[in-house]
């Protein structure tokens, strides 16, 4: 999937547009990306669509380790997108903060 594509980097504006403990969806190139900002710190990016039934991961509940899809409660690691509940894994991307700005890198 997107991992085979060449690296795409996008500057997406201020980090503060993501409330602490939640996620928000962005478009990076053609790729829908959900970026999460857990309370325990850091930023994480996953493909925004749940591989199970297409649920919006950015709407999911988040803790320090996983996001839970709001449709059927599948859980995906924020770090590598792996699923602990039996669905396929989801692609993981890199999200960082640079000068207060959110930067997401695909690939």
């Amino acid at each position: 999937m997107s991992s085979t594509e060449e690296a795409v980097e996008a500057r997406l504006g201020p980090v503060d547009q993501i409330p602490v403990g939640e996620g928000r969806a962005f478009l990076v190139g053609d790729e829908p990306v959900a970026v999460f900002r857990p309370r325990s710190g850091g930023l994480h990016a996953l493909r925004a669509i749940c591989p199970h039934r297409g649920g919006p991961l950015a709407d999911g509940l988040v803790d320090g380790e996983v996001v839970m899809c709001p449709l059927h409660n599948h859980q995906f690691s924020l770090v590598d997108g792996s699923c602990a509940t039996g669905a396929d894994d989801v692609a993981a991307y890199t999200a960082t903060e640079e000068d207060g700005e959110l930067v997401v890198r695909l690939g």
């Binding site: 969806a25 962005f26 959900a34 297409g54």
Partner: peptide
């Protein structure tokens, strides 16, 4: 109540 509270979480992608 929060930034982007009503922003769509699945932008620009045809959905099932």
């Amino acid at each position: 109540a929060t930034p982007g509270q009503f922003h769509d979480a699945l932008p620009l992608v045809p959905l099932p």
